[in-house]
Design a protein around this nucleic acid. Structure first.
Length: 422
RNA sequence: GGAGAGAUGGCAGAGUGGUCGAAUGCGGUGGUCUUGAAAACCAUUGUACCGAAAGGUACCGGGGGUUCGAAUCCCUCUCUCUCCGCCA
């Protein structure tokens, strides 16, 4: 959520930068400013009426004490009149506030000034590429074939049990999955992130807080009977841990991590993009989240990027770092960097991590603040995948295959107990 | 799922119709004392909105109602606790 004070003070700048993300933003902003003016004028009116009512009631109390019952009646009549007035005004005020809130929660976050212009992922900036060499004439199999060949994942059974996009991991496939989770979590906790196991279903308030609602309504699984949402990422419960808190600045930055399954409806996806592990309705992810002082957030963002990069290096995967352009940025994000790994059989870069600074956007929606010298300000929130499992697994399988089987990265051996799949 | 009890400031806990944004204790912050610390003592200590400021308004789980006036009475929702039932 953007605050209106800020928009008013920096109107041109706000519109200019928001246009990077959403070109037709101006009518929405104007609507909000307009409603806010109305809100203020109604509030002033209702406040002054309320003041009169309070005074009047006090007088009646005094009159009762001095037993001046005749006069009481007059004041009562006056009070009733005021109350009528107040009722009309405060009803209008309430309506305006509701409308204002509706429009406010639909304004996306302002992109950081360094975010490149652009409409889609084609316009993203490739910041860095770490390639690896592969055999020229080797027939690399895609991971879905490898999964079948080595009995790692049964996609068909998963479809029978639930539907497409719900893989059934088994045998070494299941062990590798569990190993990757532990490897990631251990790496994160060694990096100073405290581990959590959060709820997998969240209420509406939580989804609203991180900005998944109203924007991503329809992408989340919604349990209507209980009005709960299956988390699309652990970012939602993790960030909401601090909802409505005024944090002691000594505790900042707060660094936390969690493994959770993630659930996404992925409505409208089809074709080769959803083949195998590329896009799933249920997948595993380890997430890192930070709550920081506003002055620290960009420094911490750098650290998070380095942290995730080290994981990819340990996994010996070819990767690149991409800075998202305005048009590709998510609703809540001010700046986002993606890590992608190369998958040799598909000849594609696959997104495996998305690291974002939300600045105060989520903090305002969640009401996460800190208090320093009697001044209260909003924190910054950040998060990143470290890492999303399925595409990592796909790349590991595809890139390390040979006639002798699949050679796993050394870093995993301690977790799996084996280093070759054959 | 059934029966009952409850929800007050960071925490604990008073307050049952007016002067209550709310006693008291603990905690926090600042100070006095001390070489330093502890103890003791003194002061201070909620949030949001409007306003240049003075100040005003709202908030005692959420929403609604009664009343000139509600933390206090009524309705309703949510949550918590206790007992019973069911259950990994």
């Amino acid at each position: 959520m953007l605050d209106i004070q800020f928009i008013k003070k920096n109107l041109e700048e706000t519109i200019f930068r928001l246009k990077k993300k959403k070109e037709d933003i101006e009518p929405l902003i104007n609507k909000v400013l307009n409603l806010d003016e109305k809100r203020i004028s109604f509030q002033k009116k209702s406040n002054s009426i309320q003041e009169k009512i309070n005074e009047n009631s006090k007088k009646i109390g005094e009159l009762f004490k001095s037993n001046n019952l005749d006069e009481v009646e007059n004041f009562k009549i006056y009070g009733a009149k005021l109350k009528e007035e107040l009722k009309i005004i405060s009803e209008k005020e309430k309506k305006v506030k509701q409308e204002l809130n509706f429009y406010c929660i639909n304004i996306p976050n302002i992109p950081n000034s360094s975010v490149p212009n652009g409409k889609s992922e084609k316009d993203n900036l490739i910041e860095k590429t770490e390639n690896k060499s592969f055999l020229e004439n080797y027939n690399y199999l895609p991971h879905w074939e490898l999964c079948q060949k080595y009995n790692l994942i049964d996609f068909k059974k998963g479809t029978e049990i639930s539907g497409s996009g719900f893989p059934l991991y088994k045998d070494k496939g299941a062990i590798i999955q569990r190993s990757l989770i532990n490897f990631f979590i251990d790496f994160n906790t060694k990096g100073g992130y405290e581990e959590y196991i959060p709820p997998l279903l969240v209420n509406e308030q939580s989804a609203l807080g991180t900005g998944n609602l109203p924007d991503k309504d329809g992408q989340m699984y919604h349990v209507e009977k209980d009005n709960l949402y299956l988390i699309p990422t652990s970012e939602v419960p993790l960030t909401n841990i601090f909802r409505n808190e005024i944090i002691n600045p000594k505790k900042l930055p707060i660094k936390i991590t969690a493994y959770t399954p993630c659930f996404r409806r992925e409505a409208g996806s089809y074709g080769k993009n959803v083949r195998g592990l590329n896009r799933l309705h249920q997948f595993d992810k380890v997430e890192i989240v930070q709550i920081t002082h506003p002055d620290e957030s960009y420094k911490q963002l750098e650290k998070m990027i380095n942290h995730v990069e080290k994981l990819l290096i340990e996994l010996e995967l070819p990767y690149r770092l991409v800075k998202l352009c305005g048009g590709d940025l998510s609703f809540s994000s001010a700046i986002t960097y993606d890590f992608e790994v190369y998958s040799i059989a598909q000849k594609k870069w696959l997104e495996v991590s998305s690291i974002s600074n939300f600045e105060t956007f989520q903090a305002k929606r969640c009401n996460i603040k800190f208090k320093l010298n009697n001044e209260i300000n909003f924190c910054h929130t950040l998060n990143g995948s470290s890492l999303a499992l399925p595409r990592i697994l796909a790349a590991i399988l595809e890139n390390n295959q040979s006639d002798k089987g699949i050679q796993l990265p050394k870093a995993l051996k301690k977790y799996t107990g084996f280093e070759v799949i054959n």
